[in-house]
Computed example of a mutant assay.
Amino acid sequence: MKTYHQKASEIERDWYVVDATDEVLGRLSTQIATLLRGKHKPTYTPSNDGGDFVVVVNCEKIKIMGKKADQKVYYRHSGYPGGIKATPYKMMLAKHPDRILRTAVKGMLPKNRMGRRLLSKLRIYAGPDHPHAAQQPKPWKPPYATKKAV
C-alpha cells in the first residue's frame, strides 16, 4: 500500500470560528495550531499546507492558570544593543489581547516558511464581532472538557 500524499489541487479549506471566552490559553492554542496545520483531517500531509482558516473572537476573555497572570512576561528586541523590551501579561492583555494568543499559536507552528504562511490564516479579534460572515465559518468547540481557569 502506498503512502498518501495530498496534492495542492485536492486541498479543501474550511473556515472555523472559535470563541475564546473562559478558555485556557495553552489548551486553546494547541487546538488552533492543529486546525491551521490540518492535522484534524485524514488527508494530512506534513509537507503541505492543508489546514483551515481560523477566526478567534473574544480573545480579551482568555484565561491562564495559576500565578501566570502575575509572573508571565513577553519579551521583544529591537535589534539594537540594549533594545530589549519586557511587557507583563496584564498590560499585554489590556493593550493588545490578540498578541497573547498569536504568540502562543506561533510557538506551536513550524519555524519556517510554511509556519509563517499558516499563521497568516489566523484571524484574531478582541470582541465578539468579526468581518468574515461571508465565508460562512463553522463554530468550533474544542473536543476536550473545559477546565475552569483561576
Rank of each mutant, 00 (worst) to 15 (best):
Thr43Pro: 00
Arg27Asp: 06
Thr45Ala: 07
Gln31Pro: 00
Gly50Ala: 15
Gly50Phe: 06
Arg37Thr: 12
Phe53Pro: 00
Thr34His: 09
Leu36Gln: 09
Pro42Ala: 15
Asn48Val: 14
Leu28Trp: 13
Leu36Glu: 07
Arg27Met: 09
Thr30His: 12
Thr30Glu: 08
Asp52Asn: 07
Asp52Ser: 02
Thr45Met: 01
Leu28Met: 09
Arg37Asn: 08
Lys41Val: 00
Gly51Ala: 06
Gly51Thr: 06
Phe53Cys: 03
Lys41Gln: 01
Arg27Ile: 10
Gln31Lys: 13
Gly50Glu: 01
Thr43Ala: 13
His40Val: 00
Leu35Val: 09
Gly38Leu: 11
Gln31Ala: 15
Arg27Ser: 06
Leu36His: 08
Lys41Phe: 05
Val56Gln: 03
Gly38Arg: 06
Ala33Cys: 06
Val56Thr: 00
Asp52Trp: 03
Leu36Ile: 11
Gly38Met: 13
Asp52Ile: 02
Val54Leu: 01
Leu28Lys: 12
Asp49Glu: 12
Val54Glu: 04
Lys39Phe: 09
Phe53Gln: 04
Gly38Phe: 14
Thr34Met: 10
Val56Cys: 01
Asn48Leu: 06
Leu35Ile: 10
Arg37His: 04
Gly38Asn: 15
Ala33Lys: 05
Val55Asp: 02
Phe53Tyr: 15
Asp49Asn: 11
Pro42Arg: 15
Val54Ser: 01
Leu28Cys: 05
Asn48Met: 11
Ile32Pro: 00
Leu28Tyr: 13
Thr30Trp: 12
His40Pro: 00
Arg27His: 13
Asn48Ala: 14
Gly26Lys: 13
Ser47Trp: 08
Val54Ala: 07
Pro42Tyr: 15
Leu35Cys: 04
Thr45Leu: 01
Leu35His: 07
Val55Met: 02
Gly51Asp: 10
